[in-house]
Every structure is written in structure tokens, then in C-alpha cells.
Amino acid sequence: MDLSEPVKRPRGESIVPMINVVFLLLIFFLMTSQLAPPEPFEVTPPEAETEAEAEADPVLFVSHEGRIAFDGQEGAQAIATLAGQQPLAGVIQLRADSRLEASKLAAILRDLSGAGLSRVELVVAHK
């Protein structure tokens, strides 16, 4: 009769360190990411044959009716808010609808110039 203690089976690997790493990565990505606010209205950019991408940070939206929106503001208040933020080198990104009339766009560009925003990058869709 064998009365010796039975051989203990080795314990499996603990997954607690892996869970800790996953939570640390989750926290890291949440802290370093920037969530983009939703667009104020649907904008279909005009098409063009270009390889350059718009790189300016503040984005001004213009609908096909000529409505202007920026950071929750609309109209002249949107331009004033945009000008108050002092974008780098005075460059802004303009997301205008392809159905916007040229005369309305010219008036908007004149208002932007009057607010001290001298450079505008127009966002276009690639053909």
C-alpha cells in the first residue's frame, strides 16, 4: 500500500498579467487618441485630379446652400470662432459641397480674408 502524497499537478499559466497589459494598452490608446466630432451636415467634395492632401487642422464646413459651420457655430459666428483660434500659419481646411455656387464661395472666401484667414486648403475627392 502506497501512502505517499500524490504528485501535485503543475498549475496552469495565469492570464492576469495578460489582462493587465490589455487594460494598459486600452488606457494608452484612449488617452492618446483624438475623437473627431461629427460633421454638421452632409458635404460632397468636388472631384479633382490631384495627389495633394489637405493638411490644415481647423475645418470649416460649407453646405450646398452656403451654410457655414465650425465647432458647433454657424454663419458669421463660425468665422469669428475660427479666426479666434489662430490656426497655424493662418491655414484652414475648407470642406465645401460640390453643388455650392461659385459666387457664394467667393463671398465666403472674402469673409475669411477679412477675418485674417489668408490661406485656405479646399478638400477635393480624387477622380
Rank of each mutant, 00 (worst) to 15 (best):
P45Y: 10
E49D: 15
D71N: 08
F41K: 07
T50R: 08
L30G: 12
A52V: 07
T50F: 05
I27L: 10
Q34G: 13
E53C: 02
T44W: 10
A48V: 12
G75M: 10
L35P: 01
P37L: 00
S33I: 05
P37V: 00
F41V: 08
D57L: 12
A56D: 02
Q73I: 06
A52D: 05
L26V: 05
F70W: 03
L30T: 11
E65S: 13
Q34K: 15
T50Q: 08
Q77E: 14
A76R: 13
E74K: 09
T32Y: 11
S63Q: 02
D57E: 14
I27N: 04
F28K: 05
E47Y: 15
I79P: 02
I68L: 12
A56H: 02
E65Q: 13
L26N: 06
S33L: 10
A52K: 07
E65K: 09
F28D: 07
M31Y: 12
E74T: 13
T44H: 14
E74A: 10
V43W: 06
A80D: 11
P37T: 01
P58H: 03
F70P: 00
A76V: 14
T32S: 14
E42T: 12
A36Y: 05
F70M: 01
D57C: 02
E49K: 15
L26Q: 03
P58C: 04
L30N: 13
I79Q: 04
F61D: 00
L30V: 14
Q34C: 09
E51P: 01
H64L: 13
A36V: 13
A78Q: 01
T50G: 08
G66S: 07
L30Q: 12
A76E: 15
G66P: 06
F41E: 05
M31K: 14
Q73G: 06
V59M: 02
I68H: 03
F70R: 00
A54Y: 03
P38D: 06
V62T: 02
E74S: 13
P45M: 10
Q73N: 12
E51S: 09
L30D: 09
E53A: 08
F61Q: 00
L26P: 01
P45R: 08
I79G: 03
E47M: 15
E49H: 14
D57T: 08
T50K: 08
L60R: 00
Q77Y: 09
Q77K: 14
Q34A: 14
Q77A: 15
G75H: 09
A48N: 13
F61M: 04
L26R: 05
A36N: 12
E49F: 15
P58G: 05
A76P: 10
A69H: 00
S33C: 11
Q34M: 12
E53T: 08
A78D: 05
M31P: 04
E74L: 07
F28Y: 14
E51L: 08
I27E: 03
S33W: 09
P37W: 00
G72A: 07
A56V: 03
I27Q: 06
F41G: 06
P58L: 02
A76L: 12
F29K: 06
S63K: 05
P38T: 05
F41I: 09
Q77T: 11
T32E: 13
E49W: 13
G72S: 09
T32L: 15
T50Y: 07
Q34T: 15
